[in-house]
Simulated scan of single mutants.
Amino acid sequence: MADTRALLIRLIRDYPGSTPADLAKAVDLPAATVRKTLSRMADKGQVRVAPGGAYYPPEPEAMTRGHAAPVTPVTQSLNPL
């Protein structure tokens, strides 16, 4: 599941304001699975959700507090430094 989260974070960074339905189509997963994963990610501060259900990258201060998603081989390959 960590790979799915990394992919969703990348998509949200590239396309802020995406909905779970949009993201589900992009990753070819059931919308219910993506909604649940995004909900859990929002609870951990990995993403932000706006009223209406659009998802955005975390606030910059959340990243400095250690709540951002960890760097994994998947995120490194998606976003090389």
Score class of each variant (00 low, 15 high):
12 I>V: 14
52 G>Y: 14
39 S>Y: 15
5 R>T: 03
42 A>T: 05
42 A>Q: 14
40 R>Y: 06
57 P>K: 09
27 V>C: 08
46 Q>I: 13
74 V>Q: 02
27 V>P: 04
47 V>S: 04
9 I>T: 04
44 K>M: 04
13 R>F: 04
68 A>L: 00
67 H>K: 07
50 A>M: 14
79 N>T: 13
79 N>Y: 08
71 V>S: 09
25 K>Y: 10
72 T>G: 03
80 P>W: 02
27 V>Y: 12
16 P>Y: 08
58 P>G: 01
7 L>M: 13
12 I>W: 03
48 R>P: 01
6 A>Y: 08
73 P>I: 06
14 D>H: 03
26 A>M: 14
7 L>E: 07
42 A>W: 01
30 P>N: 04
1 M>D: 13
11 L>Q: 11
60 P>D: 13
2 A>V: 14
73 P>N: 12
54 A>R: 15
58 P>D: 03
77 S>Y: 09
8 L>T: 07
20 P>H: 15
30 P>I: 01
66 G>P: 04
66 G>C: 06
4 T>K: 12
74 V>S: 07
1 M>I: 08
55 Y>I: 06
11 L>R: 03
43 D>Y: 01
80 P>I: 14
67 H>F: 12
78 L>Q: 07
34 V>E: 05
61 E>R: 06
45 G>P: 08
41 M>T: 12
73 P>F: 02
8 L>W: 03
1 M>R: 07
79 N>V: 10
30 P>F: 11
76 Q>W: 09
10 R>E: 03
59 E>P: 01
69 A>E: 06
16 P>N: 13
33 T>K: 10
69 A>F: 15
49 V>I: 15
28 D>S: 14
26 A>Q: 12
75 T>Q: 08
6 A>S: 15
70 P>E: 07
78 L>I: 08
63 M>I: 15
46 Q>R: 12
39 S>G: 15
53 G>Q: 03
10 R>K: 02
42 A>C: 07
75 T>R: 09
65 R>A: 14
25 K>F: 01
62 A>E: 12
41 M>A: 05
65 R>E: 06
66 G>D: 08
79 N>H: 10
39 S>I: 07
25 K>G: 05
28 D>Y: 05
25 K>C: 00
44 K>V: 00
41 M>I: 12
29 L>N: 10
8 L>M: 03
29 L>I: 04
72 T>E: 01
45 G>S: 10
64 T>H: 07
76 Q>I: 11
60 P>N: 06
43 D>H: 01
73 P>L: 01
50 A>H: 14
31 A>N: 11
32 A>M: 09
18 S>Y: 06
7 L>S: 02
3 D>K: 07
19 T>E: 01
59 E>I: 11
45 G>F: 01
63 M>C: 09
57 P>H: 11
6 A>E: 14
2 A>W: 10
69 A>S: 10
51 P>V: 03
65 R>N: 00
29 L>P: 00
56 Y>T: 07
54 A>P: 03
70 P>T: 09
46 Q>L: 05
64 T>K: 13
65 R>S: 02
53 G>D: 10
